[in-house]
Measured scan of single mutants.
Amino acid sequence: AVSDRLIGRKSVVMEAISPQNSGLVKVDGETWRATSGTVLDVGEEVSVKAIEGVKLVVEKLE
């Protein structure tokens, strides 16, 4: 599936994300709604860990 190619990809937070609120990330020039178990600020680099419905699950790059 097209979405499977996103797992493991680097992306950049475009709208802040917290455990309570989804935000936005940009992956390969496309904007996606995303969630995370931690707070992520605009501009942080993250990695796509999973896809749940139409949202990406991301975490901060170490």
Results as ranks from 00 to 15, higher is better:
39 V>N: 13
50 A>T: 06
43 G>H: 04
52 E>H: 11
25 V>E: 02
12 V>C: 11
55 K>L: 15
48 V>G: 01
37 G>T: 14
7 I>R: 05
35 T>K: 07
37 G>N: 15
26 K>E: 13
61 L>D: 09
17 I>M: 05
29 G>E: 12
50 A>L: 06
22 S>G: 09
34 A>S: 05
15 E>Q: 12
42 V>K: 07
22 S>M: 12
46 V>Q: 00
10 K>D: 06
14 M>R: 04
23 G>M: 00
27 V>D: 00
58 V>M: 00
57 V>W: 08
1 A>E: 11
52 E>T: 09
19 P>R: 05
12 V>K: 07
14 M>A: 07
59 E>F: 00
54 V>M: 14
60 K>L: 08
43 G>S: 04
38 T>F: 10
56 L>D: 04
18 S>V: 06
22 S>K: 04
24 L>M: 10
56 L>P: 03
60 K>V: 06
15 E>I: 08
19 P>D: 04
25 V>P: 01
56 L>Q: 03
12 V>A: 03
23 G>T: 01
6 L>R: 04
59 E>D: 09
9 R>I: 06
8 G>D: 04
54 V>Y: 11
20 Q>P: 15
62 E>N: 11
1 A>P: 12
7 I>N: 02
24 L>I: 10
43 G>L: 04
33 R>F: 14
26 K>C: 15
54 V>I: 13
32 W>Y: 15
5 R>D: 09
56 L>M: 05
25 V>F: 00
14 M>Q: 07
36 S>D: 04
23 G>I: 01
5 R>W: 08
50 A>Y: 07
56 L>Y: 00
41 D>W: 10
39 V>P: 11
54 V>R: 13
50 A>S: 10
9 R>M: 14
33 R>K: 12
20 Q>N: 12
2 V>N: 13
30 E>K: 09
43 G>M: 04
4 D>F: 03
35 T>V: 14
3 S>K: 11
47 S>H: 13
17 I>L: 04
6 L>K: 04
51 I>C: 05
20 Q>R: 11
15 E>K: 09
11 S>V: 15
33 R>S: 14
31 T>V: 14
49 K>I: 15
31 T>D: 12
29 G>D: 12
49 K>E: 06
57 V>T: 05
10 K>E: 06
12 V>N: 04
53 G>T: 04
44 E>I: 08
32 W>M: 10
2 V>M: 13
5 R>C: 12
7 I>S: 03
18 S>M: 06
38 T>H: 13
1 A>V: 12
10 K>P: 08
58 V>P: 03
36 S>G: 05
45 E>V: 15
37 G>V: 11
37 G>R: 11
16 A>H: 08
57 V>P: 03
39 V>S: 13
5 R>M: 09
55 K>W: 15
5 R>G: 09
18 S>G: 10
35 T>C: 12
47 S>I: 15
45 E>D: 06
18 S>Y: 08
23 G>E: 03
21 N>P: 01
19 P>Q: 05
15 E>S: 09
10 K>S: 09
35 T>S: 09
40 L>K: 01
1 A>Y: 11
34 A>N: 06
40 L>G: 03
9 R>V: 06
43 G>C: 07
34 A>W: 00
29 G>T: 06
6 L>N: 03
47 S>F: 15
11 S>C: 15
